[in-house]
Deep mutational scan, measured.
Amino acid sequence: GATAVSEWTEYKTADGKTYYYNNRTLESTFEKPQELK
Rank of each mutant, 00 (worst) to 15 (best):
A2K: 05
T13I: 02
N23C: 10
L36W: 09
Y11W: 08
E31P: 02
Y21H: 09
Q34W: 12
L36I: 08
T3V: 14
L26S: 14
E35G: 11
K37G: 15
T13H: 04
E7C: 06
V5M: 13
D15W: 05
Y21T: 09
W8Q: 00
Y19H: 04
P33R: 01
Q34H: 11
N23T: 10
K12F: 08
T13D: 12
E7W: 07
E27P: 00
F30R: 03
Q34S: 14
A2L: 14
N22Y: 01
Y19D: 01
E27Y: 04
Y19L: 09
N23S: 10
Y20E: 00
E27L: 07
E10F: 04
T29W: 04
T3Q: 14
A2T: 13
V5R: 03
E7Y: 07
E27T: 07
F30L: 08
E10P: 04
N23V: 08
T25A: 01
K12N: 06
N23Y: 09
K37M: 15
Y11F: 12
A14V: 11
W8I: 01
Y11G: 07
V5C: 04
V5K: 06
T9P: 00
P33D: 02
S28W: 15
Y20I: 00
K17W: 06
G16K: 01
T25H: 02
T9F: 10
W8E: 00
L26P: 02
W8V: 01
K12T: 12
L26Q: 15
A14P: 13
Y21P: 01
T3Y: 05
R24V: 15
R24P: 04
G1P: 13
Y20R: 00
G1I: 14
Y20T: 00
A2M: 12
N22V: 01
K17S: 07
L36A: 04
S6F: 08
K17P: 01
Y19G: 05
T13S: 07
E35A: 14
E27S: 05
T9I: 12
T25F: 03
L36P: 04
S28P: 02
G16F: 02
T25S: 03
E31V: 12
E35V: 08
E7D: 14
T3M: 13
S28R: 09
T29A: 05
Y20N: 00
E31R: 05
E35L: 06
Y20S: 00
E10L: 06
P33V: 03
Y20K: 00
R24F: 15
T13K: 03
E10T: 10
S6K: 09
E35F: 06
T18K: 07
E31H: 08
A4W: 11
R24M: 15
D15M: 04
T9R: 10
K37P: 10
T18I: 11
L36T: 05
A2H: 13
E27N: 04
D15Y: 05
E7Q: 06
K37F: 13
K32M: 13
Y20L: 01
S6R: 08
K17Q: 10
A2R: 02
E10R: 03
L26G: 15
K12V: 14
P33W: 02
N22F: 00
E10W: 07
S28E: 10
F30D: 07
Y20F: 06
L26V: 02
T25E: 03
G16N: 05
K17G: 04
L36V: 06
G1H: 14
E7K: 03
T29F: 05
A14W: 09
K37L: 15
K17V: 11
G16R: 01
F30Y: 09
E7S: 04
E35R: 03
Y20D: 01
K32E: 08
P33F: 02
P33H: 02
G16Y: 01
A2Q: 12
Y19S: 04
Y11C: 05
K12I: 12
T25L: 03
L36G: 06
T3S: 14
E27A: 05
G16T: 00
A14H: 11
N22Q: 00
F30I: 06
A14K: 11
K12A: 07
T25V: 02
K17D: 08
A4G: 12
W8A: 00
T29G: 03
P33E: 01
Y19K: 04
S6M: 10
V5N: 12
Y21A: 03
Y11N: 05
L36M: 09
E10Q: 09
V5P: 11
W8K: 00
T25D: 03
L26C: 08
E31A: 07
R24K: 15
E35H: 08
K17H: 07
K32A: 06
L36E: 06
N23M: 08
R24T: 15
T18M: 06
E27K: 06
N22E: 01
D15E: 10
A4T: 12
T13G: 08
T9Y: 09
G1S: 13
E35Y: 06
S6T: 10
E35D: 10
L36S: 05
R24W: 15
S6I: 09
Y11A: 08
K32D: 04
A14I: 10
E31D: 11
T18R: 04
E10N: 02
F30A: 07
T9N: 08
N22W: 01
G16V: 00
Q34Y: 11
